[in-house]
């Protein structure tokens, strides 16, 4: 047989090399960046992680959740509960929070998977509100007004403030890389192929042997666990939590949806571009108060009208470019082929 199947292209190989260089540069940030810059970059990495996870959920598994703040808040509260009430070191509490989030997601999925489309979306929001109201009842963690991470818990994380800031930064960078790496690995696997198939056509997916419920369930539980872990990381940086901050639909879901939709839903590259756009807007306009939110709305409307598939969706439609090699190319089907695998 003369055909063979390849996945990477020169563009994706180049992107991998460039990505590695940027990663090395970012990992060395504690030696070249100021404290404020590192905090900002740490926040960017956490938003990038949240966006990548929401994209996996909504863009690939078709589970449009507007209630992921349930898990961010759960992660924050799990961190505070484990450190303050159970005396667990903060660094151990973060992965434990992730595990807890995945466990909590199992019965939640069993419940909300009975809902479809818009009803599913509203259902996830209701769950998040239930979590928020539940958190407000826990008087040991400050009830409705929230609580702060005790100084000794914070001090025990690392020796000195610089070391702690560097640690928080590296954790955020590490988690972002792990989340993107995991999403990439999933999308290249059989599971990813199944996800893309059911994104495109559920009827055909079912008829070709894909267990739709199980596929969605795996993705929901995995993203919930990781979102909870990220929630714990977010509040390690913030040092203070309240039900309204932890379960904020604006901060942890609306902005995340903005990022994914602007960048390009259903692509791995989209959330990266969307995160950069979002933070560029925020950092240049945050001082303008409500004008900033109006600008975000305008950008969202323009992108949805002009490029419904997002910025990366537009680029990909024009050029066929793919930085993360997920798709398959059959070589040798025609005599003439260009370097990037597109048929001439």
């Amino acid at each position: 047989m003369s055909q063979r199947v390849t996945r990477s292209s020169r563009l994706s190989q180049g992107a991998a090399v460039l990505g590695l260089l940027v990663l090395i540069l970012l990992a060395a940030a504690p030696w070249w960046a100021g404290r404020a810059d590192m905090r900002l970059m740490g926040e960017i990495f956490l938003y990038l992680s949240l966006a990548t996870l929401w994209n996996l959920l909504a863009g690939y598994a078709g589970l449009v959740s507007v209630g992921q703040q349930a898990y961010v808040g759960l992660g924050g509260y799990a961190l505070f509960a484990l450190t303050i009430l159970a005396g667990v070191p903060a660094l151990w509490a973060i992965p434990l929070a992730g595990l807890l989030g995945a466990l909590v997601a199992v019965p939640v999925a069993a419940l909300i998977f009975r809902l479809r489309g818009a009803y599913f979306a509203i259902g996830t929001w209701v769950i998040a509100e239930v979590f928020r109201l539940g958190a407000a009842q826990v008087s040991a963690l400050g009830g409705g007004s929230g609580t702060s991470l005790p100084a000794d818990v914070v001090r025990a994380m690392a020796s000195g403030r610089d070391a702690r800031e560097a640690l928080a930064y590296w954790l955020a960078l590490g988690v972002a890389m792990a989340v993107i790496g995991l999403a990439f690995a999933i999308l290249r696997s059989r599971l990813g192929l199944a996800l893309m198939a059911l994104r495109d056509n559920e009827l055909a997916a079912r008829s070709l042997g894909i267990n739709i419920w199980r596929t969605k369930f795996i993705v929901y539980v995995a993203t919930a666990g990781l979102t909870t872990l990220i929630g714990a990381l977010i509040f390690v940086q913030k040092l203070r939590i309240s039900p309204d901050a932890g379960f904020s639909v604006n901060d942890w879901t609306a902005f995340v949806i903005f990022i994914v939709v602007i960048g390009g839903i259903g692509t791995l590259e989209g959330p990266i571009i969307g995160t950069l756009v979002f933070f560029a807007l925020r950092e240049t306009m945050a001082d303008m108060g409500s004008v900033y939110l109006i600008a975000l709305g305008v950008v969202a409307i323009v992108v949805m009208l002009r490029a419904p598939a997002g910025i990366w969706g537009l680029i990909r439609a024009r050029t066929g470019a793919e930085l993360f090699p997920i798709s398959h190319r059959v070589r040798g089907t025609t005599t003439k082929e260009t370097a990037d695998g597109k048929k001439a």
Partner: peptide, 15 residues
């Protein structure tokens, strides 16, 4: 009922 966003080969690969 094709998987419209995927290539022909990928459609086959799903099956």
């Amino acid at each position: 009922q094709p998987f419209g966003g995927m290539t022909v080969y990928e459609n086959a690969l799903v099956a």
